[in-house]
């Protein structure tokens, strides 16, 4: 509402503001429950990317880039495979093989179970969500009709 010019109408912005955290919550839920129910890192990551995409479409590019800190997002996105590799090497150190499941298995159907699968799901969700969002951002970069020029 502060900047009227870029983005869509105030109705879209208000609805987006109300619904955005529910989208993120849903994505995080899907990622965290990947070892219990259908979904997992890939699906939850796409939900997160769709949430970011909603911000981008509703508020325009300039506002979103101010709000999101693009450099941090990109660093997180690039470091996700390194985190995955780190878990693999940790499995080598403590479990005996690359990507071995070295954490405690826990109880079946508990949220904190299945050892290394849960953190790997989180890493994949981060990676997929951020990289899809970065693709959208890059495609919107040289679009003359979308958002204002910074």
């Amino acid at each position: 509402m502060r900047d009227v010019k870029p983005g869509l109408t105030v109705i879209v912005k208000t609805v987006n503001r109300l619904i955005l955290w529910m989208i993120f919550l849903y994505g995080i839920y899907i990622i965290l429950h990947g070892h219990l129910s259908p979904g997992g890192g890939f699906g939850g990551g796409v939900v997160l990317a769709l949430g970011f995409l909603g911000v981008l479409l509703a508020y325009g590019r300039g506002f979103s880039l101010n709000w999101l800190r693009l450099g941090t997002l990109r660093d997180l996105e690039y470091s996700a495979p390194l985190l995955f590799l780190g878990f693999g090497l940790a499995g080598m150190a403590w479990g005996g093989a690359f990507l071995a499941n070295f954490l405690s298995k826990g109880k079946l159907f508990a949220l904190l179970s299945s050892g290394v699968i849960l953190p790997l799901n989180i890493v994949i969700g981060l990676k997929v969500g951020l990289s899809l969002f970065l693709v959208v951002l890059a495609l919107a970069e040289f679009d003359p009709s979308q958002g204002d020029d910074e």
């Binding site: 995955f84 299945s114 994949i124």
Partner: peptide, 26 residues
């Protein structure tokens, strides 16, 4: 694996190396 979802167990435990490849492709 301790995972109730067998699909996730296959993706991230038995074939986690494959998933690493997918992440690299991405």
């Amino acid at each position: 694996t301790g995972a109730a979802n067998v699909v996730t167990a296959v993706i991230l435990d038995y074939r986690a190396f494959d998933t690493l490849g997918e992440i690299t492709v991405l």
